[in-house]
Simulated scan of single mutants.
Amino acid sequence: MQIENIQFKQEGAIMYITIDREKQLNALNKKTILELNHVLCLCESDDDIRVLIITGAGSKAFVAGADIKEFANFSKREGTELSRFGHELLFDKIATYTKPVIAAINGYALGGGLELALATQIRIASDNAKMGQPEVSLGVIPGYGGTQRLTQLVGKGKAMELILTGEMISAKEALALGMVNYVVPQEDLLIKAIEMANKIIKNSPRAVRKSIQAINATYGNIGLLKEIELFGSCFGSEEFKEGVSAFLEKRKPNF
C-alpha cells in the first residue's frame, strides 16, 4: 500500500504513528483509516513492537474530526457503511488491539478524532488540547464509538451533556472527568508518552495482552451496533443536509 497520510517509525520496542494531514488539521478520511489499519496489522504480527504511540502532525490538532467533504452527500446506506467501515478497520481494532496504544493528544481532538483517542488504552494530552463531540451541530451523532466509549469513561450524565451540547472542553477539564490520564505541556507530550510506554514494556507482553482482553470483556458491543444503525439513519435527512452545508459554508446551521 502507498502510504500518503501517515508517518510511522519504530524505535526500539515502540512504534510511533503520526497522522500527517496538517493542512486539514489531520482530519480522518477513508484513505487515512485504511493506512492506519495497514500499519496496525503490520505491528500486530511483529513481536519486537510492544507499544504504539499515535499523535497528529503539527501543534494544532491531534485529529480535528472526520473529513466532512468526503461524506457530505452520503445516503442512509452509505452513512451506515461509513460507520461500520471505521469501526471494523480502525476504532474497534484499536480498542481490542493485542498491544497497548497510547494517544498523544497534541491539540484539537474533535468528533472522530476524540473517538480515535477514546479507543486507545491510554490518553495523554498537551495542555493546549481541546476535546469534544460536535456531531449534533452537523445533524448527525458520533459514529465511531463516541456514544459508548465516552459514556464508559465519564459516566452517562456528563457524556449526555458533552454529546448533546457539542461543546469543547479543555485538557484540564478532560483530566478532571477521567477522559485523559495525564495533561502535560506540549513540549513534554511525547516524553510522557514514552515514559508510559517504557513502564508497560518492562512487563510481560502476554499478561499485558490478557489484561486488555479482560478489561474489554466488561463492555459488550450491542451499544456500538446500535450506534452504527442510528448514525446511518441521520444521513439524507434535511437536518443533516443543513448541518453539513452550514459547516462547509462556514456559517451557523438553521435547525
Score class of each variant (00 low, 15 high):
residue 1 M to F: 02
residue 3 I to L: 05
residue 4 E to L: 12
residue 4 E to D: 10
residue 6 I to Y: 06
residue 7 Q to T: 13
residue 10 Q to K: 14
residue 10 Q to E: 06
residue 13 A to Y: 07
residue 14 I to P: 02
residue 14 I to M: 09
residue 15 M to E: 01
residue 16 Y to P: 00
residue 17 I to N: 03
residue 19 I to M: 00
residue 19 I to R: 04
residue 21 R to V: 01
residue 24 Q to C: 03
residue 27 A to I: 03
residue 28 L to W: 11
residue 32 T to W: 02
residue 35 E to T: 04
residue 36 L to D: 00
residue 40 L to P: 03
residue 42 L to W: 00
residue 44 E to L: 02
residue 44 E to W: 03
residue 56 G to D: 11
residue 61 A to I: 15
residue 62 F to C: 04
residue 63 V to C: 12
residue 64 A to S: 09
residue 65 G to D: 01
residue 70 E to Y: 11
residue 75 S to N: 07
residue 76 K to C: 14
residue 76 K to Y: 14
residue 77 R to T: 12
residue 79 G to D: 03
residue 81 E to F: 08
residue 83 S to D: 06
residue 89 L to M: 10
residue 89 L to C: 06
residue 90 L to G: 12
residue 95 A to N: 10
residue 97 Y to R: 09
residue 99 K to S: 05
residue 100 P to E: 06
residue 100 P to C: 11
residue 102 I to C: 00
residue 109 A to G: 08
residue 110 L to E: 04
residue 111 G to L: 00
residue 111 G to M: 05
residue 112 G to P: 06
residue 115 E to H: 10
residue 116 L to P: 09
residue 117 A to C: 02
residue 118 L to D: 10
residue 121 Q to R: 08
residue 126 S to P: 03
residue 129 A to P: 03
residue 129 A to R: 07
residue 129 A to E: 00
residue 137 S to K: 15
residue 137 S to N: 09
residue 139 G to L: 09
residue 143 G to E: 02
residue 144 Y to T: 00
residue 148 Q to P: 03
residue 148 Q to F: 13
residue 148 Q to M: 13
residue 150 L to M: 09
residue 151 T to K: 13
residue 151 T to Q: 05
residue 151 T to H: 02
residue 155 G to H: 04
residue 155 G to K: 07
residue 156 K to Y: 04
residue 156 K to F: 04
residue 157 G to E: 15
residue 158 K to L: 07
residue 163 I to R: 00
residue 163 I to S: 03
residue 163 I to F: 05
residue 164 L to Q: 15
residue 165 T to K: 05
residue 167 E to M: 14
residue 168 M to R: 14
residue 171 A to V: 06
residue 174 A to W: 06
residue 177 L to T: 10
residue 177 L to Y: 15
residue 179 M to N: 11
residue 183 V to D: 02
residue 183 V to M: 10
residue 183 V to Q: 09
residue 184 V to N: 01
residue 188 D to W: 03
residue 191 I to Y: 06
residue 195 E to D: 13
residue 195 E to W: 12
residue 195 E to L: 14
residue 196 M to T: 15
residue 197 A to C: 09
residue 200 I to R: 03
residue 201 I to Q: 02
residue 202 K to E: 15
residue 203 N to H: 14
residue 204 S to A: 08
residue 204 S to N: 14
residue 205 P to N: 08
residue 206 R to V: 15
residue 210 K to P: 05
residue 213 Q to F: 08
residue 213 Q to V: 15
residue 217 A to P: 01
residue 220 G to F: 08
residue 223 G to A: 08
residue 224 L to R: 10
residue 225 L to S: 08
residue 226 K to T: 01
residue 228 I to P: 01
residue 232 G to L: 03
residue 233 S to V: 07
residue 234 C to P: 01
residue 234 C to M: 09
residue 235 F to K: 02
residue 236 G to P: 12
residue 237 S to K: 13
residue 237 S to H: 05
residue 239 E to Q: 11
residue 239 E to R: 13
residue 239 E to A: 07
residue 241 K to F: 15
residue 242 E to C: 10
residue 242 E to L: 13
residue 243 G to A: 07
residue 248 L to N: 14
residue 248 L to Y: 12
residue 249 E to L: 12
residue 251 R to K: 15
